[in-house]
């Protein structure tokens, strides 16, 4: 629509927006995280929701205890192989649209504990991750920055068209297979549909 017409209508008190913008505006300003802290990063996540750094001004005050009521899973801390099936199960239980923030070096790639037999080298081996926050632990300000990045990502999601968001596309999966406890390792070690090791040219 012509910008001049838009500003004329605005002066009269009539606002013209696309359905996408309204839909995304409502969703991005009230993202409810799942109360799910694994390790040290969880303490910084709690500190980010406390009085000094205050995550609730972004709409994320209510940390839901149940995954059925949450939009966002902040994987804060090291994901071990013993815990990985539970993380994937919780992700599957969340209703669409859902997002994942991998907080801290451990959730991104195993972090300082990379050489551990029980450490999963990154939660993005099994579930798709939207925002990665580096740090060990990342400061609460970094978590707020990640929140704002996620909000911008949600604002840019489309409702119609070939590149529409995942939850509008019936062919995209919203639940991912849960790994099983094997005798020496998890079975399968990674989900090839979600994660392939990036090719590094040396």
């Amino acid at each position: 629509m012509d910008d001049g017409l838009k500003s004329e209508l605005t002066k009269q008190g009539i606002y013209v927006v696309k359905l996408e913008q309204l839909y995304n505006w409502g969703r991005s300003n009230s993202v409810w995280p799942l109360g799910f802290g694994l390790a040290c990063c969880a303490i910084e996540m709690i500190a980010a929701s406390m009085a000094r750094f205050d995550l609730s001004r972004f709409g994320a005050e209510v940390f839901r205890p149940s995954p059925r009521q949450a939009d966002l899973m902040i994987v804060a801390g090291t994901v071990t192989k013993k815990m990985a099936p539970q993380v994937v199960r919780l992700y599957n239980q969340m209703p669409e649209p859902k997002y994942v923030i991998a907080m801290g070096a451990c959730a991104i790639s195993g972090g300082p504990f990379k050489q551990g037999y029980n450490v999963l080298k990154g939660i993005d081996r099994y579930i798709p991750v939207d925002v990665h926050i580096p740090g060990c632990p990342p400061r609460p300000e970094a978590l707020i920055h990640a929140f704002m990045t996620l909000q911008r990502k949600i604002d840019a999601q489309k409702v119609f068209g070939p590149d529409r968001a995942r939850h509008f596309d019936a062919s995209q999966p919203s639940e991912f297979p849960i790994p099983l406890y094997g005798e020496h390792d998890l079975v399968p070690a990674k989900n090839p549909n979600v994660w392939e090791p990036p090719v590094v040219v040396r």
Binding site: K82, S109, Q115, K121, K190, V200
Partner: peptide, 26 residues
């Protein structure tokens, strides 16, 4: 107590072979 029940090895032994998931090392 620390590993899951179906786990077969004893990881702190000096001759333990850990699983190889080092595909991506930046």
């Amino acid at each position: 107590i620390l590993m899951w029940d179906g786990f077969k090895d004893h990881p702190m032994r000096k001759d333990y072979q850990e699983p190889d998931d080092y595909e991506y090392e930046p």
